[in-house]
C-alpha cells in the first residue's frame, strides 16, 4: 500500500459561512487511509458542516479538498471558484459513504431495495449482482431477515444499520458518520455502535461526528475537539480525555457529558 505515505483526504483552509456566521473557519486536516477520526464538540460548533463539506453537500466558500491526492469538488474559471460538474461531484460522493443522524432511508423501497439502489442506479450493475451485493451488506449488519420489509416497520437502530449497509454497498473508500446514534433510544445505540466497530476492524477509513465519548474513546485513533468553527484540540483519546486536559473549554464540555 503506497497510500500509507499519502493521505486519503486532505482539507486545506476549509471555510464555510452562513450569512454572518462562520460555521467552519479555515480548517486544515489530513486523514490517512484506515484512520478512525472522531470529531467532538458542542452543538453548532461546525462539526456537521465540516463533514457535509467533505461530501460536497455543502458548498464551501474557501479552501481546497483533496481526495486521494487530487483536488475535488471545485474548479477555477476566470479566476473564480465554481462547483465542479455535477457528474464529477456525484462520482466523488459515490466513493465516500455517508450516514445521517436521521437515517434518511428511502421509505418507498424495501430494506433490500434501499441497499441495492446505489449499485443498481448509480453503478448501473445488473439487478442480480446488485441484489447479491446488498444481501452481503445486510448480512454484515445482521439484518438479512429484514430484507423484504419496508423501513417503516424497523426500529431506529435497525434503520441506521440499513443506512450503513446502503452506504457500504457502494464500496466506498471512506465513511462519514454524522451523529449516527443521536436520534436513537439509548438501548439501541449499542447495535449501531457494533456495526461501526465491525467496519472499523475491517480497516475502513472513517470520520465520525458524535456526542458519545465512550464511542470516541474506544474507537478513535485520533480525536478532534471542535468549537466555533475551529479545532481547539487534537490528539489520541487518552490525551484528550485525560484529567490533565488544560483547556478550560474542553474540560467543562467533557465534564458536562461525563
Amino acid at each position: 500500500m503506497n497510500s500509507a505515505s499519502q493521505p486519503l483526504l486532505t482539507l486545506e483552509n476549509i471555510t464555510k459561512r452562513f450569512k454572518d456566521l462562520t460555521a467552519v473557519n479555515g480548517i486544515n486536516l489530513e486523514v490517512s487511509p484506515g484512520e478512525k477520526l472522531v470529531i467532538i464538540g458542542p452543538s453548532g460548533s461546525g462539526k456537521s458542516t465540516l463533514l457535509r463539506s467533505i461530501n460536497l453537500l455543502e458548498e464551501i466558500d474557501e479552501g481546497t479538498i483533496r481526495f486521494e491526492g487530487r483536488e475535488v469538488g471545485y474548479v477555477m474559471r476566470h479566476g473564480k471558484r465554481h462547483a465542479d460538474r455535477p457528474q464529477a461531484i456525484s462520482a466523488l460522493r459515490a466513493e465516500i459513504g455517508m450516514v445521517f443522524q436521521h437515517f434518511h432511508l428511502f421509505p418507498h423501497m424495501t430494506v433490500l431495495g434501499n441497499v441495492m439502489e446505489g449499485p443498481l442506479t448509480v453503478q448501473c450493475k445488473p439487478a442480480d449482482e446488485a441484489r447479491s451485493i446488498a444481501d452481503g451488506m445486510l448480512a454484515k449488519v445482521g439484518l438479512s431477515d429484514k430484507r423484504d420489509v419496508f423501513p417503516a416497520t424497523l426500529s431506529g437502530g435497525q434503520k441506521q444499520r440499513v443506512a450503513i449497509a446502503r452506504a457500504l454497498a457502494m464500496h466506498p473508500k471512506m465513511m462519514l458518520f454524522d451523529e449516527p446514534t443521536s436520534a436513537l433510544d439509548p438501548e439501541l445505540v449499542g447495535e449501531v455502535f457494533d456495526a461501526i466497530h465491525t467496519l472499523a476492524d475491517e480497516g475502513m477509513t472513517m470520520i465520525i461526528v458524535t456526542h458519545h465519548m465512550g464511542f470516541a474513546r474506544e474507537l478513535a485513533d485520533r480525536v478532534i475537539f471542535m468549537d466555533g468553527g475551529n479545532f481547539l484540540a487534537e490528539g489520541t483519546p487518552e490525551e484528550l480525555f485525560s484529567k490533565g486536559q488544560d483547556n478550560e473549554r474542553i474540560r467543562s464540555f467533557l465534564n458536562r457529558l461525563l
Binding site: S90, A94, G118
Partner: peptide, 17 residues
C-alpha cells in the same frame, strides 16, 4: 423531506436520478 435528496446524492445519484 430534504434529507431524502441528500441521502440520494450521498450515494452518488444525480439530481435526475
Amino acid at each position: 423531506d430534504h434529507g431524502q435528496m441528500e441521502a440520494a446524492k450521498a450515494i452518488g445519484m444525480s439530481y435526475g436520478q
